[in-house]
């Protein structure tokens, strides 16, 4: 990175963007799976898990944007859940819906990894800049 110091002032736009791609893919996955899956008790599980994950992913995106280190690996958890869902697509989903569900699940996993990775690397650079320049908390808070 040419200007590591800019991380002190500019938000983590890259990771934030990846989180939003993840959210978009999650919406696509959920809607296409719900559209054609067999109606049984699994349907409530799928909808509940994914709705909760949507909300959580959004909150995580906001934290990642402002370089909250506690959240840098949280997207990996979402990636794991999506991987599980990818490998266990409910019965009844078939044809075009299945393809779209699979593609969006794969994209979601990839973007969750990207968000986490970017977040990790930038946080590391940022922490180094803060330590090297002896930057106090008062300069970083709004």
């Amino acid at each position: 990175m040419k200007r590591p110091k800019r991380l002190l002032y500019q938000t983590n736009k890259g990771a934030y963007a990846f989180m939003f791609i993840f959210i978009a893919c999650l919406v696509a996955y959920t809607s296409f799976v719900l559209k054609s899956m067999q109606v049984d008790h699994m349907i409530s599980a799928v909808s509940l898990i994914n709705i909760v994950m949507l909300l959580a992913a959004f909150l995580t995106a906001e934290e990642i944007k402002v370089y909250n280190r506690k959240f840098q690996f949280v997207p990996l958890l979402y990636a794991a859940i999506m991987t599980y869902q990818l490998l266990n697509i409910p019965t009844g989903v078939a044809g075009g819906d299945l393809i779209i569900a699979k593609i969006s699940a794969i994209l979601a996993v990839v973007s969750a990894f990207a968000a986490s990775g970017l977040s990790y690397f930038r946080n590391r650079i940022r922490a180094k800049v803060i330590a090297e320049n002896n930057i106090g908390k008062s300069q970083l808070t709004k």
């Binding site: 040419k2 200007r3 800019r6 002190l8 002032y9 500019q10 300069q139 970083l140 808070t141 709004k142």
Partner: peptide, 24 residues
Amino acid sequence: CDEIHDKVIAVSEIVKLDNELNRL
């Protein structure tokens, strides 16, 4: 982003706000 950063930092030194850049 780098260009924005350079300009803003240079100007913040002129107007002596380089310690308040993250404030609202």
